[in-house]
Amino acid sequence: MISKYFYIKNNNFIKLLDNLSADYRVFIPQETRKNYFWKKYKGNFEFSRYRTVNPLRQFFTSSVEHINNYFNPKTPKETKPFCIVGAKACDLGNSLKMHDYVFLEGDIDLFYKEMRDKNLIISSDCTSFKETCFCLALGNMPYPEALFDLNISQVIDGYLVEVGSKKGEEIITSNKSLFEDANNKIQAEREANRKRTVEEFKSQINSLDFPDESRLNSLIKNGYGDKLWAEEALRCVECGACIMNCPTCHCFLLFDTKDKNGYFKGRIWDGCQYKNFTRVAGGASALRLREYRLRNRYIKKFEFFPERIKVYACTGCGRCAESCPGKIDIRKIFKTLNENSKTVKK
């Protein structure tokens, strides 16, 4: 058993990413006008202060992919797994837990399993936060505590590396010369940095008037008839940005296609905010109104998943609020549901 903590200098970290590029498709966050987007690693790495705009799940389930060539099975081409550097806590935690439940419980989805087994996650602490970030309000920390292979925390001239898995341990072992022991001073520096970020973050969270996270489930359960759903849904333009950017949305649609090589089934990310999501042959649709669809999204995340696996399918990343052109904001929805729940209904 090797140690849990290591130190790596900035230049050695670049060497590590170069080495990893031999076995992995390495992706890093790249900043464009204060937003980070996943980009292929090309020799430069800058530490990201907060989460990317697009979620990590794109490396575990593709937004569009062929999943079989039926009646004519062929072995698919081997592709390199992903190494994702700079994933934040809000892309791990409940996001991976609920994805594991959906795709690995019962009938195992081979595509997800392969990605989950082979992909390497090098996560990192947040040192700042965006206006829409609210992970703390859900009781989640802005630094990864589990479900990573390696986690890096920015310290002087380099990173404190925490080992989180067997896979992570193997990366350290096979790149031993790049790592140094992490002394107590470096570990203390990480703790101080984390504490400072959380303290700064708290003032943003406190100004939200967000209800206690233990009450979110009951607020949704008792809020089916709330007028807020209809009011908020008026501004929904059905673009689906909240779905595509959400780390816990997992819905997909199977489709069929063909070419000279045969018949294929594919799958494409789908979601309950789209009009035809629940449409059946003949035209009936359970979620035919935007207000039903908006409410449905919250039922799934705050009622269905807690019922099944005792976690909210929400990590507090705030991407839905950030990307919504209609300014539908999860933080405001819970605040309003909370306020409305206090007005006595007779």
Binding site: V102, D109, C251, F252, L254, R267, D270, F277, K300
Partner: peptide, 14 residues
């Protein structure tokens, strides 16, 4: 759609 409780289309409450 998928028939396996994964794609999410046919959920009714819990």
């Amino acid at each position: 759609s998928c028939g396996l409780g994964k794609c999410g289309h046919c959920r009714l409450g819990k």
